[in-house]
Write a protein that binds this DNA or RNA. Structure first.
Lengths: 71, 71
DNA sequence: AAAGAGTAGGGTAATTGGGGCT
DNA sequence: TCTGTCCCAATTACCCTACTCT
């Protein structure tokens, strides 16, 4: 019942979103995206979650405040 | 609590964390993760410990529902 | 006994984490 | 407020050859 989806590295997620890996790190630190940490401290992201975010699944997304237009 | 004695290979643990098998070996050498050595010198890892490490770290993350904070 | 896949070990390059700043 | 870039330190990835496991 567990979703064994693949994990993505910060760099891969950054490429998917076309942003700097540092930005992905900030998202994780802010709790906007779930993250798994390796014993070494590096982050890994669930592909399914990233996909959902990329798909524009804004229905159940956070940070969707009052009509805040995109930057 | 029973001890999950199922042992995982470095490659399996590496797949779970999305890292290189050599990195898992490094974790064991650094004492970050418990390891059992075969008479031949190969390492084996306890699944229960690996699972704990994978889920042990979870900051605020999405997936539950939209946390509508009036922020 | 032989073969293939996986693993150990060492060394070097690339990526990542964290803080601070343009 | 959010993102990109610079710094340095730590972690991780890929190269090789030799040994172990099935």
């Amino acid at each position: 019942m567990e979703t064994e989806d693949r994990l993505l590295t910060p760099g891969e997620v950054a490429s998917l979103f076309r942003v700097d890996p540092k930005t992905v790190t900030r998202w994780a630190a802010a709790g906007r995206i779930g993250s798994i940490r390796t014993p070494g401290g590096h982050r890994r992201f669930r592909e399914s979650e990233v996909r959902a975010l990329l798909e524009g699944d804004a229905e159940a997304q956070t940070g969707f405040e009052a009509g805040h237009s995109t930057h």
